[in-house]
């Protein structure tokens, strides 16, 4: 910023190439604006295509999630829900926020810390049968650690459940 200003003043003092200082300054400003516009366009374009939103299993069940677009879900792997296909690489499990649960299918090697009753975050798309086709499964590096997203989903589920009991 400041250096741009420096050069700006200097070029104003030493006109070159037959351009008047005023025109030269204008040229710099236009150049700067184009540069900024290009950067902003670059960022917006990248953001548009690569931000993944996070939803809780309850929201998935209530159909508040985008269709045909990847998103993340988080919660706990429901106890006793982990089933492995005969080929050994495809796994089925359910992710729960203690209120609702979503079936998930994933093919590939699961992270070290993936296990039942542990926090998990999965990225993927929801298919027409309401099954979450995961492309990526994340479990974090510490035994006591609950992914913040997973924790938030469970908190929200608590709130919702408590609200329900009050209504009843």
């Amino acid at each position: 910023m400041s250096a741009g200003q420096e050069t700006l003043q200097k070029t104003a003092v030493t006109p070159a190439g037959g351009l008047k200082p005023r025109h030269k300054r204008l040229l710099w400003i236009i150049f700067g604006l184009v540069f900024i516009a290009a950067i902003v366009a670059l960022i917006l374009n990248a953001f548009g295509s690569s931000i993944t939103y996070f939803y809780s299993p309850t929201e998935v069940v209530q159909d508040k999630v985008p269709h045909g677009r990847a998103f993340r879900i988080g919660g706990m792997v429901e106890g006793g829900s982990l089933v492995r296909d005969a080929n050994g690489l495809t796994v089925h499990f359910r992710v729960t926020d203690t209120a609702k649960a979503v079936p998930v299918v994933y093919t590939g090697i699961l992270p070290d810390l993936f296990s039942e009753n542990k926090g998990v975050v999965a990225q993927g798309k929801l298919d027409e049968h309401g099954v979450f086709q995961a492309t990526q499964v994340l479990a974090k590096h510490d035994e006591n650690y609950v992914a913040p997203e997973a924790a938030a989903a469970m908190d929200a589920a608590h709130k919702a459940r408590v609200a329900e009991t009050v209504k009843e």
């Binding site: 953001f47 931000i51 938030a152």
Partner: peptide, 28 residues
């Protein structure tokens, strides 16, 4: 920091993945 900002403003939880960084970093 963007996910943190959105979270702080309670606009939802998101994650910005490698595609963003690659799409911006390489052209620069």
């Amino acid at each position: 920091l963007y996910p943190l900002f959105l979270d702080a403003l309670k606009l939802g939880k998101i994650s910005v993945g490698p595609p963003y960084f690659e799409a911006v970093f390489v052209p620069l």
